[in-house]
């Protein structure tokens, strides 16, 4: 698929959907890369103590991963001038992978569409991300400059 152009998209144009699976190892890696070492993202005992259903994926890991639906579509990650989300529901990530880190995990389904065409070659893209049928990010919007 060739990169989208402002003239070539309209309100309602769908972006290719993607799914992303988060495993416990992904959370550990993201904690290290981001510096967010909140224990609810890696410690089962404390997650249970504070009443959570399981260890939770970092909201920012979900936000950063889901952005790929937009950046992969645009082809140029720097074309995004604004990106925002509301965290509505956390993604629980069980410790259920094999010794080599494969299998198990929690899968988030992501779709997106152009919901407005703006001036200056900008478009508004609204992203929908669900886990287990429930919305995990609301008001998930990217403003993208297209050629």
């Amino acid at each position: 698929m060739s990169a989208p152009t402002w003239a070539g998209v309209e309100k309602g144009t769908a972006l290719p959907s993607q799914t992303f699976t988060f495993r416990r190892g992904d959370l550990v890696r993201y904690a290290g890369a981001s510096g967010d070492f909140n224990v609810i993202h890696w410690n089962d005992r404390i997650a249970a103590e504070v009443g959570l259903p399981n260890v939770l994926a970092h909201g920012m890991l979900t936000m950063g991963t889901v952005a790929r639906v937009v950046t992969d579509w645009a082809g140029d990650p720097g074309a995004v001038t604004e990106y925002g989300v509301r965290f509505t529901r956390p993604v629980p990530v069980p410790d259920d992978s094999a010794l080599d880190g494969s299998g198990g995990g929690s899968t988030v389904e992501v779709s997106a569409e152009v919901t407005d065409k703006l001036e200056d070659n900008l478009v508004k893209v609204t992203i929908k991300a669900t886990y287990d049928g429930a919305t995990v990010l609301a008001k998930a919007i990217a403003i993208v400059r297209l050629p």
């Binding site: 909201g59 920012m60 936000m63 720097g78 995004v80 001038t81 604004e82 990106y83 925002g84 989300v85 509301r86 965290f87 008001k139």
Partner: peptide, 10 residues
């Protein structure tokens, strides 16, 4: 403290 929402403007 819970992270409610997040926006970046570049």
């Amino acid at each position: 403290v819970v992270h409610g929402d997040q926006t970046f403007r570049y």
